[in-house]
């Protein structure tokens, strides 16, 4: 629901004159702008614990949780240590797993004064995860008090559901070895998840948009291996054999053909020699 407004939000928070450090703000603005152009701008339900463990690539400002690019997040928790200033309202959100700082710029100060949450009340926060001076915090664009506390239960169940979906989507690659004996389970698992519209997978949108039905299972899985944050970090990319090793149930030749296909489609490129490839997204 926020995908359309993603770019606007980024620039609104990043480019505004409220930032203590303009250079930091500009850096972030650049990141935000680039990000809004990427395919994935979904909304991830998370916990403070998951945010504290999110991986951040040195090359950009993006965060990754369960291998998925984090853009907008939603959390539910209790408000602590609220501070109201002329330019913003900030507080610590305690969601049972830990605390994270949430900041809400006062675009409409008079409105905020009425809606700003009290300490020790539960709220749902929608916002943008970012790192500022080495600290992770959330720039919120919505902070709403919770009136039906079943929403609390719902939120954490949704966190578990999305976490498991993402893990299992990767599991097509990561968990493949355990499924080695029963070839078909892995691909089947992916197929099920792929048809689930509520599933957040950074791979799926570009695949369907750019190459239609031409991507077969092997190509999909090879591509996913190249898109993993760890793979993106390796300078020379992955060796064909490294990929083949993880593609249990597929021959080296099939993997090679899949890579050739991905090269032709512009998803990966060869690096130091004809056996090393890297994602063009890196």
């Amino acid at each position: 629901m926020y995908s359309g407004a993603g770019g606007g939000d980024g620039s609104m928070f990043a480019g505004g004159g409220f930032m203590p450090s303009q250079s930091q703000a500009n850096d972030f603005g650049g990141g935000g702008g680039r990000r809004s152009g990427s395919q994935n701008s979904g909304l991830l339900p998370l916990t403070a614990k998951m945010i504290s463990q999110a991986i951040q690539k040195p090359s950009d400002e993006n965060f990754y949780v369960d291998g998925v690019d984090v853009n907008n997040v939603t959390l539910v928790g209790m408000v602590h240590d609220k501070e109201e200033r002329a330019t913003d309202v900030s507080f610590q959100l305690d969601d049972t797993t830990g605390q994270i700082e949430v900041k809400r710029w006062s675009v409409l100060l008079t409105l905020l004064a009425h809606h700003s949450p009290w300490n020790f009340t539960y709220v749902r926060v929608h916002g943008h995860l970012r790192s500022f001076q080495g600290k992770r915090n959330i720039v919120a664009f919505s902070v709403r008090p919770i009136t039906d506390f079943n929403e609390l239960t719902f939120h954490f169940l949704e966190v578990i559901y999305v976490h498991l979906s993402n893990i299992r989507a990767q599991g097509g690659t990561a968990a493949a070895p355990t499924h080695a004996a029963t070839a078909g389970v892995g691909p089947h698992g992916i197929a099920t998840i792929a048809t689930n519209p509520s599933h957040y997978n950074q791979y799926l949108p570009p695949a369907s948009a750019m190459v239609g039905g031409n991507v077969d299972e092997c190509q999909k899985r090879v591509h996913m291996i190249f898109e993993e944050p760890e793979s993106l970090l390796i300078e020379q990319g992955l060796h064909i054999d490294q990929v083949a090793q993880r593609m249990v149930g597929y021959s080296r030749q099939q993997v090679k053909e899949a890579i050739e296909f991905l090269v032709n489609e512009g998803f990966v490129y060869s690096t130091i020699d004809d056996d090393h490839y890297k994602s063009t997204n890196a």
Binding site: K49, I51, S52, T96, T97, I100, K135, R136, N137
Partner: peptide, 11 residues
């Protein structure tokens, strides 16, 4: 800032 030193797990 994230602080996960003092969680309060749901039980």
């Amino acid at each position: 800032m994230t602080d996960t030193c003092s969680p309060r797990p749901m039980v």
